[in-house]
Design a protein around this nucleic acid. Structure first.
Lengths: 237, 237
DNA sequence: AAGTATATCTTGTATATACATGTTGTGCAA
DNA sequence: TTGCACAACATGTATATACAAGATATACTT
């Protein structure tokens, strides 16, 4: 890491999480922090602003930065996080079952969503996520082959995002997400342990790269009783 | 508005929304913008960073700022937005029915959530939101009387947030939100037009003021078929 | 003793400069 | 014609200074 304000940010996060500065106390003032980190006030302020954005502190003019330890929860689906990254932070045992991996012509719907031509081929991946032995989540991924030419079963069982970022060197940047509740499809009923639930929670995401190109569409279909979405929000005026 | 970077931000938002710079084109460079707005580059950069945060542009190093018009959707429940503010942006007719407004001792649960003492009184508000004549949303609000001493039926029918911000001069600042799916309670079945749905989507929010004090807890209970949550997310590394 | 003015702390805004680093097109050389 | 070097321009990072404005403790005045 070479970006100074980022290393300071991460250091401050760690210190807040380890209770170095307990909840609802004040951080050292910006001027003191410049001394501690041997840097300028503007650099400190950049780090502090990211802390505020992410719900670690609340800045109060004339007073200082209050720690608000909205403790980063068990299952933060906010942001863009791969299942593997989630699983790593979870206490429960997880498993991924690849049910489908095929290069196919896009359906009408997917054509429009991914903005590809009629004859274009796309990757179609269907995976079941098992948590504590129960089939809880059905992930249906569609990738534009212009950006993801190759996919293997091995990659899908491990982590596609890991492959995209570390092997293909793609820079995943932002996503448009939508959460709705739907009736289960036959596929849902077939592949998930729905236990009589008459709804599934569906997270639909369009995911974009650094250069604003749309490369992925995903539907993540969850059993409703196991679904939880937490978010930190700021009031905008 | 006296903050220069905020007026520039709002001006740029307006110009993007009115297609002055169409989707996937480049904004003028930072240097050009300093000329247009008669200001310094850092001030322009502050405005641009807020645009990027809110999903209007994607900054690409060496190239410029690409407009990504993730068009602000019909029902943005992301952020902290009052029902009245939502209703004003909606095409459909809405109505609010106040079913309860009482000063009561907090239950065990609410005591813990709002962090008030056993004997403390809190405001308990129950409102039904009608959209196109259907009872779709049940809002259950709990306010700490230390910050909201007075509430009237009139205020609850109009907009509590409007009252808090413009009359009481409270500065609502941030919230911790959680979305889960639950089985309907008797109250849900009684007050909402559930039409046989066996689930409700519940948004639970703790809302905080400027000085980090917790003043409100809310449960917003939605009929699942009418629920939609959209969000813009950035990948953090 | 009470209240008020003030000094001094805090964060917020605006501006300037310097250099690093990524992108793109121009023009020269093979 | 192809390919490479380089200039020109874009954004990113780090630093400095000045002043505005909110919070707070101190000391002084009444």
């Amino acid at each position: 890491m070479q970006k100074k304000y980022m290393t300071i940010y991460h250091d401050l996060v760690k210190k807040i999480q380890t209770n170095h500065w307990p909840k609802s106390t004040l951080l050292p003032s910006e001027n003191e922090l410049t001394g501690l980190y041997h840097t300028s006030r503007e650099t400190i302020r950049k780090a502090l602003n990211i802390l505020a954005q992410n719900g670690y502190i609340q800045k109060v003019r004339g007073k200082g930065s209050v720690v608000i330890d909205i403790s980063k929860f068990d299952f933060p689906v906010s942001g863009i996080v791969s299942f593997k990254e989630l699983a790593n932070n979870m206490q429960l045992p997880t498993r991924t079952l690849v049910r489908e991996l095929a290069l196919v012509e896009a359906s009408q719907d997917i054509q429009e969503i991914l903005k590809v031509a009629k004859s274009d081929y796309i990757w179609n991946v269907v995976r079941v996520r098992e948590i504590s032995g129960e089939k809880i989540i059905l992930d249906k991924d569609y990738f534009n082959t212009a950006y993801v030419p190759v996919l293997t079963r091995q990659i899908c069982e491990d982590s596609i995002y890991d492959y995209l970022e570390n092997e293909l060197k793609l820079t995943i940047s932002f996503a448009q997400k939508e959460i709705v509740v739907e009736e289960p499809t036959d596929e849902d009923r077939d592949l998930l342990d729905l236990e009589g639930f008459s709804n599934v929670v569906v997270i639909k995401s369009q995911v974009f790269l650094d250069d604003t190109s749309l490369f992925q569409y995903t539907e993540s279909r969850h059993r409703p009783d196991k679904f939880r979405f937490v978010d930190f929000a700021r009031r905008v005026r």
